[in-house]
Design a protein around this nucleic acid. Sequence first.
DNA 1: TAATTACGTAACCGTATTGGTTACATATTA
DNA 2: TAATATGTAACCAATACGGTTACGTAATTA
Lengths: 163, 163
Amino acid sequence: MNSRFAVATHIMAYLAFAHEGNRPTNSESIAQKLGTNPVVVRRLIGSLRAADLVRTQLGAGGGASLTRCPDKISLLDILDAIEQPSDPDLFALGSIENDVCSHHIGSCIQSSLQDIFGAAEEAMKKELAGSTLADVLSQVSKISCPEQFAAAQSNLSATTSVG
Amino acid sequence: MNSRFAVATHIMAYLAFAHEGNRPTNSESIAQKLGTNPVVVRRLIGSLRAADLVRTQLGAGGGASLTRCPDKISLLDILDAIEQPSDPDLFALGSIENDVCSHHIGSCIQSSLQDIFGAAEEAMKKELAGSTLADVLSQVSKISCPEQFAAAQSNLSATTSVG
DNA sequence: TAATTACGTAACCGTATTGGTTACATATTA
DNA sequence: TAATATGTAACCAATACGGTTACGTAATTA
């Protein structure tokens, strides 16, 4: 899960950069910036699309774009989008949840731990819910490298316009 | 990571149950209760011992026992104990952290995301730091199944005394 | 002292997951 | 109609993990 989340957030950040220019961004250029494969990007974009965070457009000039403004998309939205049925829970008890352990004391411990793990997960999600893509962008522009940020923005819109 | 944490916490909970009776608990009996293999238990106990949460005793009548009272051991202590160098971080950027991506905008996004991910992780850890093994035990005894809890406690001390 | 117990650790295996890659059908644009 | 780009399946290699066996070593106990 962890790398998927980071990559997905990265993708969303790039799409947020390109959000002003109305042209979609293709998986090829995102993959190149991330140093990965276009199919990997498309797979994640597929999950993001299923969660209605991005829309995609087929055909020439196609690609992905955000469905709403970056300040309306939290990092929790992204996490929820890429969560898979195979990721039951960040703190899943996994193989412990079997019949062998379902004697009294075992199941009692389990339910107790699940409460605590659930609280920890909630705390994490609450934090992620408080950060939006817009926050990421403004942090980038303010703190890290303002002039490169401006240059990158114009580069990006140029890239997405040209192809 | 996630299963390791859950299993380790389970192990610690069992050791906490046995903490009053001064006899250590062997990996065999813990593994049996958890429906797993003694070696798996010993591996985790090895990490817990390295973090000075448990001590182990070799030889006949040996096993593991807590180094301090359950109310002095937080779930964060356990998480920290079993964190491995290969688990750099819950939100690690993984394969993104390569040279290809280290152009200006990419590295800016990364540092921004790392801040946010770090905050989320901190929130989670803070929650775990607030829960002790004693809390787990009392939750088990109070909420879930008081009479079984009492029975299990006496069973456990009997088990660890007899072998 | 000898036998038993139990840990510590290495080694190996099967499985699951993941990311990377190729390939191709489909849709959209020009 | 040609070019572009997505959607998706399929396959591969690498990694991680849990399970298991095996064995050396230490401590107890008879």
